[in-house]
Structure formats: C-alpha cells, structure tokens
Simulated scan of single mutants.
Amino acid sequence: MAEADDLLTALVDHVFALAGRFTEAGDAITGPEDLSAARWLVLGALQDGPLSPAEIARRRGVARQSIRESVARLERSGHLSRTDGTDQRTFLVALTSRGREALARIEPRRRAWAEETAAAVEVEALRDAVAVLARLRAS
C-alpha cells in the first residue's frame, strides 16, 4: 500500500498546484467582466436555477463563508438577487439578467482556454482523470 499512499500524496500535490493555476486562469477569463474566478463559480452554480448559499458551497466544495462573501458582492453588483427560501432562516439566490449576460460573455473565453489547455492531454486521459477525481471526491 505504500505505493498507493505515495501516489495519492503526489496527486494531492498536483491538485493543489493546479487549483492555484486554474484560479489564476479563471481570474484572467473573468477579468473583463470585473469578476473573479470565485464569483464566477457562484454564478455558474446558479445557471440551472436558484440555490441557497449552503447548497452552492456544497456543490463547489468550498467554505460557506467564502460563498456568503461572493454572494454579497454579486448582489451589490447586480449579478444576482435573493428570493425567499424554504423557511425564514434561509434564502435562495438567483441570476439576474446581468448575471446571465456576464456568463454568456465569459463562455467564449472559457471555451478557448479549455480547448487550448486540454490539447496538452489525450481525451481518454482526461476522461480517466475526471473519473478518478470524482471517485476520490465521493469517498
């Protein structure tokens, strides 16, 4: 099992390094919209409909506090709005037209970056990587 332990440690090192690089890329992609990668993640989570900040945090695998901060900034900038939740303690957030329009303008830049970056690896290797990371995330 020592080999599996070493491999997992190496994988974690690469994931942390890539997370930083992906955040930098996300900031560059969203910069023209005066957004950050963190706020873009919130907007993207809302594409299929309203969610609570807690639901966004769970889906994105980040701390609720960072989502709350992003939600507050996105509300102030007009990219999203609050709606009533299931009880008085919760609320949902939803994209506004400004938020949807920002995502639409970001999408071509995201696609170009993804195509360029993915060209460094075979498609089958990417499929395998996604499957492995999904299994590890679920365990």
Rank of each mutant, 00 (worst) to 15 (best):
Ile56Val: 10
Ser36Gly: 04
Gly31Met: 08
Gly44Ile: 01
Thr86His: 14
Gly85Ile: 05
Ala94Gln: 15
Val15Trp: 07
Leu51Asp: 03
Ala119Tyr: 02
Thr83Gly: 13
Val71Gln: 06
Asp34Tyr: 08
Asp5Met: 13
Val42Gly: 02
Glu75Arg: 15
Ser81Asp: 13
Val62Gly: 04
Ala131Cys: 09
Val12Glu: 10
Ala125Ile: 13
Thr86Leu: 14
Met1Ser: 14
Leu74Trp: 08
Ala2Glu: 12
Ala63Gln: 10
Phe16Asp: 11
Arg68Val: 07
Leu126Tyr: 07
Arg59Thr: 06
Arg89His: 14
Ala57His: 02
Leu92Pro: 00
Gly44Pro: 03
Glu33Arg: 03
Gly49Arg: 03
Ala129Arg: 10
Pro50Ala: 05
Arg76Trp: 10
Phe91Ile: 03
Thr90Ser: 14
Leu46Asn: 01
Leu51His: 06
Leu7Ser: 07
His79Trp: 02
Ala17His: 09
Glu115Gln: 06
Ala94Met: 04
Trp40Gln: 09
Leu136Asn: 06
Arg64Asp: 08
Gly31His: 13
Val12Gln: 07
Arg73Lys: 14
Val12Leu: 12
Leu74Glu: 12
Glu55Leu: 04
Arg110Val: 08
Leu126Asn: 06
Val130Gly: 02
Ala102Thr: 09
Glu124Asp: 15
Ala37Ser: 12
Glu75Trp: 08
Pro108Met: 04
Ser139Lys: 05
Arg73Pro: 00
Ala37Ile: 01
Ala104Pro: 07
Val123Cys: 11
Thr23Cys: 06
Ile106Pro: 10
Ala54Cys: 08
Arg21Cys: 15
Glu101Ser: 14
Glu122Phe: 08
Ala10Pro: 03
Phe91Ala: 09
Thr86Arg: 15
Ile29Val: 12
Gln65Thr: 13
Glu24Thr: 12
Asp48Thr: 10
Glu3Leu: 11
Phe16His: 12
Ala131Thr: 13
Ala10Gln: 08
His14Glu: 12
Val121Trp: 11
Leu35Gly: 01
Val123Gly: 12
Ala131Gly: 09
Pro32Ile: 06
Val12Ile: 13
Ser81Tyr: 09
Val71Ile: 05
Leu8Met: 08
Met1Leu: 09
Gly44Leu: 01
Ala37Trp: 06
Glu122Gln: 12
Asp27Asn: 13
Glu124Tyr: 09
Ala2Leu: 14
Val71Tyr: 00
Gly85Thr: 02
Leu136His: 04
Val71Ser: 00
Asp5Glu: 13
Gly31Leu: 10
Arg89Ser: 14
Glu107Asn: 11
Gly31Tyr: 07
Ile29Ser: 00
Asp34Leu: 10
Val15His: 07
Thr90Tyr: 02
Gly26Phe: 00
Arg82Pro: 04
Arg68Lys: 12
Pro53Ile: 05
Ala2Trp: 07
Thr96Ser: 13
Leu92Thr: 12
Thr30Gln: 03
Arg76Lys: 14
Ile67Leu: 02
Ala45Lys: 04
Gly61Asp: 02
Gly31Pro: 02
Glu122Ser: 15
Arg21Pro: 04
Leu46Lys: 01
Glu124Gln: 15
Ile106Arg: 08
Leu43His: 02
Asp13Pro: 07
Leu18Asp: 13
Phe16Ile: 14
Glu55Val: 05
Gly49Asp: 02
Val62Ser: 01
Ala112Arg: 13
